[in-house]
């Protein structure tokens, strides 16, 4: 049997909101260590990787070595509309069951339950090695969200140029070109901090459609971390409630290459 209780149900709601437009069906891989999910978008350009450690849950129980729960994202997000922002969520599935039961509770006054039919999903797992990035940028989620949204008005691609001292986001579109520079700002108020760590400068192009999609996970944490390498996909990482110990929602995006 699998049973997990999360007192802050909105965390799960935010996770599903963050990935629903990239993947239609996903597998929840449950084990005694927590919940993992890996899914690619249909064009194999981006990948979602979720890790929820048991620390994020008030109660966590998985009797088997592993269980795979296939979820349709549209149905899950529909179900989470039932979940109020202050509700706790309990997920429950029998070992050979065909459903995942969600219970949303606010105190004892209001209890909603929904049994979701599970799906059998063929998923391709990619091996993603632990990568040391040449450049790491930590910036406020609100800033990331704003940059991606504003830049999408001018073009389809955004160049991220990370150098010692700061990071430049630029777009070159039909109406003209623009750029936004964020200075390495370690000594300001936490919520405004921008940390740019550079071993070697990197400049890469990415599709704004995907970067904007990742921004939908912004409510999950205060800061987002970008990892850039000249020869591997971009990593966009949101730590759950800004605590890596609880887990993270990561997105990987293949860069564009100039002809």
């Amino acid at each position: 049997m699998f049973e997990a209780v999360l007192s802050n149900g909105s965390t799960l709601k935010k996770i599903f909101e963050g990935i629903k437009d990239l993947c239609t069906d996903v597998n929840f891989d449950v084990s005694s260590e927590g919940i993992k999910l890996q899914a690619m978008d249909s064009s194999h350009v981006s990948l979602v990787s979720l890790e929820l450690h048991t620390d994020v849950f008030e109660q966590f129980r998985c009797d088997r070595d592993s269980m795979t729960l296939g979820l349709n994202m549209k149905s899950v997000t529909q179900i989470f509309k039932i979940c109020g922002n202050d509700d706790s969520v309990t997920m429950r599935a029998e070992d050979e069951g065909e459903t995942l039961e969600f219970t949303f509770e606010k105190g004892e006054d209001r209890v909603s339950t929904f049994e979701l039919k599970l799906m059998d999903i063929d998923s391709e797992h990619l091996g993603i090695p632990d990568t040391e990035y040449q450049c790491n940028v930590k910036l406020p989620c609100s800033e990331y969200q704003r940059i991606c949204r504003d830049m999408a008005g001018f073009g389809d691609n955004m160049t991220i140029d990370c150098q010692k001292g700061g990071v430049t986001f630029s777009v070159d579109g039909e109406v003209g070109k623009g750029k936004i520079f964020l200075k390495h700002q370690p000594n300001v108020e936490e919520k405004h901090k921008v940390i740019v760590t550079v071993k070697e400068g990197v400049e890469l192009d990415f599709a704004l459609r995907y970067l904007n999609n990742f921004a939908k996970a912004a409510p999950l944490s205060d800061h987002v971390q970008l990892g850039l390498n000249s020869d591997t996909p971009l990593s966009v990482r949101f730590d759950i409630e800004d605590k890596a110990t609880l887990g993270s929602l990561k997105f990987f995006l293949a860069p564009k290459i100039k002809e």
Partner: peptide, 14 residues
């Protein structure tokens, strides 16, 4: 126009 790379270029299936 730059060409969109795909993740299969970088990672292998496991």
């Amino acid at each position: 126009t730059p060409i969109q790379n795909n993740l299969d270029e970088f990672y292998t299936l496991v």
